[in-house]
Amino acid sequence: MTTNVAVADGIFTIDNGRPKLLGSRCTNCDNHMFPRQSGCPKCMFNEQEDIELATTGTLWTWTVQAFPPKAPPYLGPTGDDFVPYGVGYVELPGQVRVEARLTVSDPEQLIIGMEMELVLDPLCIDEDGNQVVTYAFAPTQSSTSGGDAS
């Protein structure tokens, strides 16, 4: 079995095959930021704490990447092997809206307000044979099984 390695350090951790996004929280005004940074753009306070962001939220807006991005920088399959993917902002309640790939790329299946959860998304195999992964959001079971997606 191949080993999952993150596309870069410091963006998310992998725990039991699930990602957790690494964010910052301003200790003065509670503003949540992703990825981690020092300095709060809201209150200009300079002390932030490291946190892991929520792993579920609701879809705030979306699009579909229907043409292959230029490579570099894109690490996923390009040319004839390209696979369209969704892109959206997912609102993590009380925290922040995070931009992410979406595992669904069919416009018929993407609805603003639907429940989403964080998953790993494969990009490519690196020179050591490891699976390079990034994070993505997928519809939760309840939002795909005919439940109320609004």
């Binding site: 993150a6 596309v7 870069a8 963006i11 990447q65 991005p69 570099p72 920088p73 894109y74 690490l75 996923g76 993917y85 892109v87 931009e99 992410a100 790939r101 990009l123 390079v132 990034t134 994070y135």
Partner: peptide, 10 residues
């Protein structure tokens, strides 16, 4: 370049 690598820098 995790952002471009992940296909988000468009």
């Amino acid at each position: 370049d995790w952002y471009g690598g992940s296909g988000l820098a468009l």
